[in-house]
């Protein structure tokens, strides 16, 4: 886990906090889609700031990125990126069952992203006794220059990206998306401190 340097206990604790947050985000998504969502254990990994741009630019089939900033107490802040692949966009439209002219694909992606991001982060924050506020979600078109410009213009310096790989299966359909959470170093230190506090209770 490179600069995150989590101990085995911290890693287990973070995974469990993320599982709980993901469970509630999925429940919200299932209610929104009026269906059942099969949950898998989400995998988490950290990505160096320098590696992230390379990773993102290598993905030729990324169709859209929905970006949303968040901030809470004690230096907790960051930006969440939900990344969708080309092959998943049609499935998402099918899932939502929107009529073609009812709501644009962009609006659908923003809807889904906002549900996933805010529910996930709210539940995560709740568990570490924090409370978050959000900026409006922004859809970035699939133009690499725009994406890299966007990443460079964050209102904070981010040192680490926590990547949560999410896979949702909804009965006949499945779609994948990655949630990448960019966090500055102060927030990382804070999260470690909180993990230790949670662990101390045992």
């Amino acid at each position: 886990m490179n600069e995150f340097h989590l101990t085995e206990d911290q890693q287990d604790c973070l995974q469990e906090l993320i599982n709980i947050a993901m469970g509630q985000a999925s429940d919200q998504l299932a209610r929104y889609l009026d269906t059942f969502v099969y949950l898998k254990v989400p995998s988490i990994e950290s990505v160096e700031a320098s590696e992230l741009m390379i990773t993102l630019s290598q993905r030729k089939n990324t169709i859209a990125v929905v970006s949303q900033g968040f901030f809470g107490y004690e230096g907790i802040r960051g930006e969440s990126l939900l990344i969708y692949q080309e092959e998943d966009s049609g499935r998402i439209a099918d899932l939502l069952g929107y009529e073609p002219d009812e709501l644009s694909q962009d609006e659908q992606l923003i809807d889904i992203s906002s549900i996933l991001t805010t529910t996930f982060l709210n539940v995560f924050a709740q568990q570490i006794d924090n409370q978050l506020s959000y900026n409006a979600p922004k859809l970035l078109p699939n133009v690499q220059e725009i994406l890299s410009e966007h990443l460079q213009q964050m209102p904070f310096t981010w040192n680490l990206a926590l990547k949560v790989n999410i896979n949702y299966q909804v009965t006949d359909y499945s779609f994948n998306c990655n949630m990448i959470i960019l966090i500055p170093e102060t927030a990382i230190t804070n999260i470690k401190y909180v993990l230790d506090r949670v662990l101390e209770e045992f």
Binding site: I20, M22, G23, Q24, S26, D27, A30, F36, V37, L39
Partner: peptide, 8 residues
């Protein structure tokens, strides 16, 4: 469980 969907 964390999977709290009513159907589950």
């Amino acid at each position: 469980s964390a999977d709290i969907q009513p159907e589950m």
